[in-house]
Design a binder for these strands. Sequence first.
DNA 1: CGCACCGCTGGTATGCCGTA
DNA 2: TACGGCATACCAGCGGTGCG
Length: 397
Amino acid sequence: MKDSKDEQAGPNGVTINGESSAKRKSRSKSAEGGTAAASKRSGRSQARTVTVVDVAEEAGVSIATVSNVLNRRDVPLSDEVIRKVEEAAGRLGYRKNRMAASLSKQRTNELGMLIPGFDSYFGKLAEEMENLAHRCGYHLSVFSSRSNAAKEKRHIEALLERRVDGLFCHGLTMSHDSIRRLVGSETPIMLFNAWEWPTDAALGIVNLDFYAACGQAVRYLQEKGCRTFVYLGAAGAEATDRQRRSGFLDAAKSLPDSVNVHVVEMSQSSLEEAIEEIAGFARNDSAGPVGIVGFDDSTAFRIMMKLVEKGFAVPEQFKVIGINDEGYARDCYPSMSTFAIPHKSQAKLMIEWLLTHLGEERKLEEAGLETFRPPAGVKERHIPVTLVARMSTEGRG
DNA sequence: CGCACCGCTGGTATGCCGTA
DNA sequence: TACGGCATACCAGCGGTGCG
């Protein structure tokens, strides 16, 4: 569909010298009873930017018609008027004043997003979200907080001061009560990767299902002949770790009693100490290979490389699975099995959920997206992640 | 002097009514 | 039907005014 708003943008700083008659007319009312401050302000704008008033005058139509042409294509308009307004806007280099429009509509068409950092998965997710938001006529501002509660508060305050129409936040470091007090009820907030968060803290929560993934990893390793299972924990990551750890441990409970299950706390021991401990499992526990599930790719990768360096065989003695599907998991040798994160479907669901809530069904449709209304009472959705099997569990083919 | 209150300002969107 | 014209709302800050 043709979008006049995209075409009318002119060179920045295009100005009109001297006032239009419509402008003079509208100003004259206040100027008569005007204050000193008012005349000072009007004197300041010797060169001002192009407004709808100028476009209306240039096109020979009313301001209402300009507004209708540029914003409301559903009102009856002749092709001739549309053409005249679009040409006038183009000639003058008219650029919509978002601040004024927001003031009038009580909508800024701005969305805010808070992520822990721009690296790997979060960067990809933010980029996808920005693309989708743009397609729907929204602008997305993304801030990174490095999981620092004070920084989170500062960024959220800044976004709320900009009157964003909605917020996307990862599982924050700040308390649930703090975010509720901070955001209030006026601004809808979508949480993502917010495990263990109460569902009433947000409009909705979109979580990646790492619990199921870690359970799947255990069963998959069992099928591959593993009799010893190790989870490489990152206790410092709190809820993120707890979700993966409980998925691993709960799945391990359903394994036969003869298997051995261990958790190695990576944050509490050096890499050498961790390798020593893990190597011990291979010697002591069983004749089968040891299955290792890492908290993430980075953790799994460091352990796998160290095992190879020490002369252990991957995947014959140790089978390793990470989480995140970082580029190096594919490119290293042996290539590492991992879980791919469907950041595109996660981003799509979050945008669709929030914009449906904002009543933007039409924009979603125009952008080729769908509306999303969760069933009554449902406020949390899980996005499944996909196992990508590679050499570290499958062998060298 | 300090304070409270009022009116005005910026630019746009939109509803309603009038008119050709 | 296809416009024009007008009024109003939106928000935050500033200046003016009146009062104690």
